[in-house]
């Protein structure tokens, strides 16, 4: 599953970047992230309650930040496993100054395994897109 999105944020890249590598901000922006515990540099254990509406699954996993080139780009990796199966994804986020704000281009590649993909494939892409949109919506609010 591959997704690309372009988002406009009302803050310069440096501020956006700083927010993106801040675990507290990350936790607030990643839908369903209930706890982010730092385990190493740029690596966190996470409890996720991922899903939509009635359908939710609990996952335990990690959030990692790699390829950091402040304030231009970095890659965010999320991995989780739980009773419904697993989620794995990485998102390359590229930040470019645009006037007083930032244009963020997000290239994401994700994989969902287990019961969710077996019964919910028709909604997976759209749900992933919705979660990605919400991530940047919340990020926009954080940096405003």
């Amino acid at each position: 599953m591959k997704l690309t999105g372009t988002y406009r944020l009302a803050a310069p890249p440096a501020r956006v970047f700083a927010a993106l590598v801040d675990p507290d901000v990350l936790q607030r922006c990643i839908e369903g992230a209930e706890r982010l515990v730092r385990t190493a540099d740029d690596q966190y254990d996470v409890h996720l309650r991922l899903g939509i509406g009635t359908v939710k699954g609990a996952y335990v996993g990690t959030v990692r930040l790699t390829d950091q080139q402040p304030p231009d780009r970095f890659t965010l990796h999320v991995e989780g496993k739980g009773a419904p199966g697993f989620v794995r994804g990485s998102a390359r986020i590229q930040l470019t100054a645009a006037g007083a704000g930032t244009v963020a281009i997000c290239d994401a590649d994700g994989q969902v395994g287990g019961v969710v993909s077996a019964v919910g494939s028709r909604l997976l892409d759209a749900t992933a897109r919705m979660l990605m949109d919400r991530f940047f919506e919340r990020l926009g609010a954080e940096v405003r």
């Binding site: 899903g51 009635t54 359908v55 939710k56 009773a83 419904p84 019961v115 969710v116 019964v119 919910g120």
Partner: peptide
């Protein structure tokens, strides 16, 4: 808590344990 009406969305989700 979840509301149960006709049960044709909630019950299958619960049986798959996608809703708990």
């Amino acid at each position: 808590a979840r509301l149960l009406a006709g049960g044709h969305s909630l019950i299958p989700a619960m049986k798959l344990r996608l809703a708990q």
